[in-house]
Simulated scan of single mutants.
Amino acid sequence: MTSELRVVIADDSALLRSGVAHLLTDEGMTIVAEAGDPDALLDAVATHRPDLAIIDVRLPPSYTSEGIHAALELRRRYPQVALLVLSQYVEEQSASELLASSPRGVGYLLKDRVTDVEEFVETVRRVAGGGTALDPEVVAQLVVAGRSPGRKRLDRLSPREIDVLALMAEGLSNGAIARRLYITERAVEKHIRSLFPKLDLPPGEQEHHRRVLAVLHYLEATAGGSTVKTEDRAQ
């Protein structure tokens, strides 16, 4: 997919669009269209049917949530198109709505945190391939702000298992999770093996598939506003 990835970029800043387009073109991707407003974005996707649309949350005319509304409309019309949303701030409602529509092929990143070019390119590819990518701050706010009763399976997890699952949702490998939590990789593997049955994920499935299903459970629950146990996270 690396050399064939077709991308639409939507941002009101021509300079930012050009910079992202140049970066992704250098990585072998094809920028099929650029858009500066929601209507142009919808037209571009309808015309080109890209693999991925990269969308700024705040687009004209009001620069509030037009981008997320356009993303939701794209998900309704073209569910096969992956969506990577960029935002200046964590907008909890926007993230929740987008993830609730379907967490497959969805990313939500804060612009100020997109400083590592290699990591950003890897995120683009992962989301385009049907994976998920959430900024750590987005994950934290979705977890803390939850309110609804769709929480029972996540409530079975220990605080440390929640930590591990949240980092899995960010797309981190076991090694990266271990470094982030200052624990061993073996400990990460133990927590992952433990959380699978608590989420009712059958042992017959391949581990990669069970990881995807676990992340989907997590994203669907947090996007729906469920509360998970976040107390005593240092355990």
Rank of each mutant, 00 (worst) to 15 (best):
E97P: 03
L59Q: 10
H208S: 03
R156C: 00
R113Q: 11
I55D: 09
E137G: 03
T227K: 15
A44C: 05
S65G: 01
S102M: 02
A95Y: 04
A100K: 14
Y78K: 01
T47M: 09
E118C: 00
G129V: 05
A10S: 13
T222P: 01
L98F: 07
Y182S: 13
S96Y: 06
S87E: 09
I162P: 04
A128C: 03
D200W: 11
D232N: 11
E231T: 14
P103Q: 02
S194G: 10
Q93L: 12
H191R: 14
A10G: 10
V164S: 07
Q141F: 02
Q235P: 15
V106G: 01
P61K: 02
G28F: 02
P136Y: 13
Y218M: 08
I177F: 14
V144E: 11
A187P: 00
Q206G: 11
D11L: 00
K152F: 01
V85P: 12
T123Q: 13
E34R: 07
H208K: 02
L172V: 04
A21W: 07
E170W: 00
K111L: 13
G28A: 03
A40P: 09
M29Q: 08
A21N: 04
E170D: 01
G129S: 15
A166K: 01
N174K: 05
V139S: 04
A70Q: 12
A71P: 09
S62G: 00
D135R: 04
Y63C: 01
S3H: 13
H191A: 11
R113H: 13
V139N: 01
K152G: 00
E122G: 05
I9R: 07
R6S: 10
R180H: 15
S101R: 10
I192E: 11
L109C: 04
L216Y: 14
L157M: 09
S65R: 12
E97M: 15
P50D: 08
R210W: 03
I54K: 06
V127F: 12
K198D: 10
D56P: 00
L42E: 15
P202W: 10
R179I: 01
L181G: 08
T123V: 13
P38C: 08
A46K: 10
R193E: 14
E118K: 10
E91M: 06
L167N: 13
E91G: 00
E161D: 08
L181Q: 08
E118M: 04
R160P: 05
S194A: 14
L74M: 09
A214H: 10
K152L: 05
R75M: 07
V20C: 00
V8A: 07
G225F: 04
L172T: 03
L52K: 08
S194H: 09
L86G: 02
D11V: 00
V124M: 07
T2A: 13
R211A: 05
K111A: 12
R233I: 07
K152D: 10
L109I: 04
P38E: 06
E185G: 15
T64V: 12
A35T: 02
T47P: 00
L199S: 06
A10H: 09
F120Q: 06
T227A: 13
G130K: 05
L216T: 05
A140W: 08
A128N: 07
